[in-house]
């Protein structure tokens, strides 16, 4: 679509901009201010310069948390994206089953995050939880408070349970938006199922997948409530992700300066990854017909 060049459009943006800026820019500035000082209270503070950044960048615990975080985010993306697409492909398309399945599949998304943690905490307990009890009955010594592998697997499973529906829902809607004529053309050409998926369905899904993957990446990078309730970051620090290290530092120990410095580093990392991803996708999509439009 050809867009009209019109700077008066700023007036339509303005209310939104003011509201978001109020919630975004003032706190961000404050965090930057914290990061260069040792703050006890607004009147007792010392300028420390870049010291906190240096300390944080060289802190082995945080480096480990960062690596764990990347491992976690990539793992869940690798599971949730294909699984979500798969679910979207097999979801019924009409009738009462379609509505029923849609509602059931969406359920986990609408549960408050700490309740998700509680659900899985209950579900995986060895004494009163179905999964914990079941696995023990099957002869596997399942214990998320002792074994890091179990804790890790449980958190991944919980995240898959919680968030695959988002990808599935977005893809399902994307699939429903494909006109029937495309499939008819494919039938006439005797296209295989794979060809239909690769050349008709997947291209139409690109946009929703970009949104889905970006949202999932950003949220998984900030995951806090669920592992906090489920494992508390343990055993040891095997499931302590970035947000939790941060919260412990900021609220638990009241170390505002270091945690502010660290959250800025953390923010820059997410910003870079998301920007590269976003630009790569938008760039790839830009075919000659739309060139120069945006």
């Amino acid at each position: 679509m050809n867009k009209v060049r019109n700077n008066h459009a700023w007036w339509l943006i303005l209310p939104m901009l003011l509201l978001v800026a109020f919630s975004a820019i003032i706190p961000l500035m404050t965090v930057v201010n914290y990061s260069v000082q040792d703050v006890f209270d607004p009147y007792t503070r010392f300028f420390t310069g870049t010291e906190w950044f240096q300390v944080m960048l060289n802190d082995p615990a945080l480096q480990a948390a960062l690596l764990r975080q990347f491992a976690f985010s990539l793992t869940i993306l690798a599971i949730e994206v294909p699984l979500g697409i798969g679910i979207a492909l097999i979801m019924p398309k009409q009738g009462w089953q379609a509505s029923a399945v849609l509602i059931l599949v969406t359920l986990p998304l609408l549960i408050p995050w700490n309740v998700v943690g509680s659900i899985w905490q209950i579900f995986t307990r060895g004494d009163i939880g179905l999964m914990g009890w079941g696995l023990r009955e099957l002869g596997y010594g399942y214990n998320i408070t002792r074994s890091p592998a179990d804790a890790w697997a449980t958190i991944v499973l919980m995240d898959v349970w919680h968030w695959t529906p988002l990808i599935a829902l977005l893809c399902y809607s994307g699939l429903r938006a494909i006109p029937e004529a495309y499939y008819q053309a494919a039938r006439i050409d005797r296209a295989s199922k794979w060809a239909v998926f690769r050349f008709i369905q997947l291209p139409k899904l690109t946009n929703v997948l970009v949104i889905g993957i970006l949202l999932r990446f950003m949220h998984s990078f900030m995951i806090y409530a669920e592992p906090f309730v489920l494992t508390g970051g343990g055993p040891g620090s095997s499931t302590t992700f970035l947000s939790q290290s941060l919260t412990t530092m900021a609220i638990g120990q009241q170390d505002l300066g270091p945690s502010a410095a660290f959250s800025l580093i953390y923010f820059l990392i997410i910003l870079l990854v998301s920007w590269v991803f976003y630009t790569a996708i938008m760039h790839r999509q830009k075919d000659p017909t739309t060139q120069g439009e945006r």
Binding site: I26, T30, V39, F47
Partner: peptide, 14 residues
């Protein structure tokens, strides 16, 4: 504004 703990370098930066 005092709770925003401004410093000269960050003010210059912004």
């Amino acid at each position: 504004m005092s709770w925003m703990v401004w410093t000269v370098p960050t003010a210059v930066f912004f």
